[in-house]
């Protein structure tokens, strides 16, 4: 009998090996529940980012299973995975990766319009609300190049939140920011997890920031060496 409420995300014996033979992630089993704020740490090349891409359905495991809300994603087509990413996941990368031709507002609107659940003015309203909540209300119509590094990263977080995802995945989101901005970004993540019940998984190599997470996973050579959860 299946449990009534499956965990949000689950990895079962997941291994990711490159065709050339290098093993990025080895036999990882992890369970993430709603509202968790997780920091994934580890030295360079320990497989942190690879693990995140597997969690984010951007990459497929060589062996093992990735389950989102109890559903095995192994057999899903590329397009079905894309649809899941659009609805349930939000990504934040080290670089903001905002589309340079479009304003912050347009950048947030793009995933909302792609999902197509909201129409017309509702799209704009939601995008504005997201930006305003992250303190970018006044800068909404500026192009990414006109924004500061911290503002860009906050705009990227607003975009990740566009379709109200249950899971936020961040890959070194503070790697390019100064301490104050980095702390602000972690404040936002903390709030998203604690107040809004989203699961936030952040890859970072900053031990001070990692301490603020509710759960810390340490990776070495693609294996989990410690998991505080």
């Amino acid at each position: 009998m299946a449990p009534p409420d499956p965990p949000l995300l689950e990895l079962r014996d997941v291994t990711r090996q490159l065709p050339e033979g290098a093993v990025l992630v080895r036999d990882v089993t992890l369970v993430f529940r709603r509202g968790e704020f997780v920091a994934v740490t580890g030295p360079s090349g320990s497989g942190k980012s690879s693990l995140l891409y597997l969690l984010g359905l951007l990459d497929r495991p060589s062996a093992g299973h990735v389950l989102l809300e109890g559903r095995d994603t192994a057999r899903l087509s590329t397009n079905e995975l894309a649809a899941l990413r659009l609805q349930k996941l939000g990504f934040v990368f080290q670089f903001h990766f905002l589309l340079p031709e479009f304003s912050a507002l347009d950048n947030v609107e793009i995933p909302i319009r792609r999902l197509g659940r909201l129409k017309g003015a509702a799209v704009r309203d939601r995008a504005m609300a997201l930006l305003a909540a992250l303190g970018l209300g006044d800068a909404a119509r500026k192009l990414p190049e006109q924004l500061s590094g911290g503002m860009r990263q906050r705009a990227a977080i607003a975009r990740a939140l566009a379709n109200d995802p249950a899971l936020i995945l961040a890959d070194e989101p503070t790697g390019n920011l100064d301490t104050a901005n980095a702390a602000a970004v972690f404040d936002i993540f903390e709030r998203l997890a604690r107040e809004e019940g989203r699961t936030v998984i952040v890859v970072t190599h900053d031990p001070d920031l990692a301490k603020r997470a509710t759960r810390r996973i340490h990776l070495v050579d693609g294996r989990i060496v410690s998991d505080s959860g």
Binding site: R85, L99, P111, R114
Partner: peptide, 16 residues
Amino acid sequence: TRDIAIMKSLGFTEGD
């Protein structure tokens, strides 16, 4: 290249 990558990670399909 980067914009394509980010759009795909956002959930845009190959067709898009």
